[in-house]
């Protein structure tokens, strides 16, 4: 559905995107993850035909965006980093204008009107229909931008930071909307909010300084980075020898105390990846007569992967000490709060 091959984009002396290749299959949600200035927006601008690549090619819905831009653009909905709204238009006028621009001439007026109403319902902006775009809050602007991208029911959706500027509740709504759209649509979204990719994306392309650092599912990326698996075990009424006892289980490499409360104690149990030690651990706890309060696999969160990948890259690129923290200040506390609250290990 989307195929990017050896894409390079230079702005004068600055190489913003350097030999990037990836693909997205029909119905999939692909995440582009990277710190500020990684080249996410640039990649998307090439994919949408906004600007040509310096080298390489991009194909969208079977059409090369450079040699067949009109056909490609017909099949792409794009939400740029800043929603492209005209301040003097009302939301309805704006969406009608975009509909005229993007729908083929054969679409009737009544069909157009129902499309406009349809996307307004989908993105929950119907009550703002007659308000001027200039007077919308940031979150509503973002939603109108999303509505605009959906209006011609495109096969491919390219969303540049779709949840930026939304409050936690809206973030969840937009993620649900995006997940609902996948299947019929192929979605590429960019973000530097890490939980977002594990929440919404089936596959992730991690970019740093214009280069692809890793492409995989969030789950596999987690595995890839770990030679060992870790369990979190919380037990009740255990004696002082609990840690020593747990270490005797075959396959366990290391046991460390994680937290201790009045009654209970939590351990991190590291083991070889090829052995699933959960059954053995549970059996031992039952045999010893301890109370089992919690037993769950601990995975490296994507944040950790991200840090690891980008720091490695930094070292390769001349051992630079400066480190780009993956959160954008502009995202504000809302987004961080949201990511906190949703950061429970993913399924």
């Amino acid at each position: 559905m989307i195929e990017v091959q050896h894409l390079t984009k230079r702005y004068g002396p600055v190489t913003a995107v350097d030999d990037v290749s990836f693909r997205a299959e029909k119905g999939e949600i692909l995440g582009l993850l990277g710190p500020n200035g990684a080249g996410k927006t640039t990649t998307m601008r090439v994919l949408t035909g906004y600007m040509p690549a310096t080298e390489g090619s991009a194909t969208v819905a079977g059409y090369d965006v450079f040699t067949n831009p009109i056909e490609a653009k017909r099949r792409v909905g794009y939400l740029p980093e800043t929603p492209p709204l005209y301040p003097d238009m009302t939301v309805r006028e704006y969406l009608t204008f975009v509909a005229k621009l993007k729908l083929p001439g054969s679409v009737s007026r009544s069909e157009r009107i129902s499309r406009v109403n349809g996307v307004m319902t989908k993105t929950n902006i119907t009550d703002m229909a007659n308000r001027h775009c200039a007077k919308l809050s940031k979150g509503y602007k973002q939603r109108v931008g999303l509505a605009q991208a959906l209006i011609h029911d495109p096969e491919v959706l390219i969303l540049d930071e779709p949840t930026a500027g939304l409050d936690p509740k809206q973030i969840i709504e937009v993620r649900d909307l995006i997940r609902a759209l996948a299947g019929n649509h192929t979605v590429v979204l960019s973000t530097h909010i890490l939980p977002e990719v594990s929440q919404t994306c089936r596959r992730v392309v991690i970019i740093n300084r214009g280069r692809v650092v890793a492409v995989d599912t969030p789950d596999n990326l987690t595995q890839q980075l770990k030679g060992s698996a870790t369990l979190y075990v919380q037990v009740d009424a255990a004696g002082a020898d609990a840690a020593a006892a747990l270490s005797t289980i075959i396959g366990v490499r290391q046991v460390s105390e994680h937290d201790r409360r009045e009654q209970s104690v939590g351990f991190e149990v590291a083991s070889d990846t090829e052995r699933d030690i959960r059954r053995d651990v549970a059996r031992m706890i039952v045999d010893k007569g301890w109370g089992l309060l919690e037993l769950r696999p601990l995975r490296l969160s994507l944040e950790d992967i991200f840090l690891q990948l980008t720091t490695d890259e930094n070292q390769l690129a001349g051992g630079s000490k400066e480190f780009a923290f993956p959160f954008d200040g502009a995202q504000g506390d809302a987004a961080e709060a949201a990511s906190e609250s949703e950061a429970t290990p993913n399924a």
Partner: peptide
Amino acid sequence: RSGTIELLLTSPVT
């Protein structure tokens, strides 16, 4: 300035 050019240039118009 406002970025609406991105809408025009990514729409199926020449």
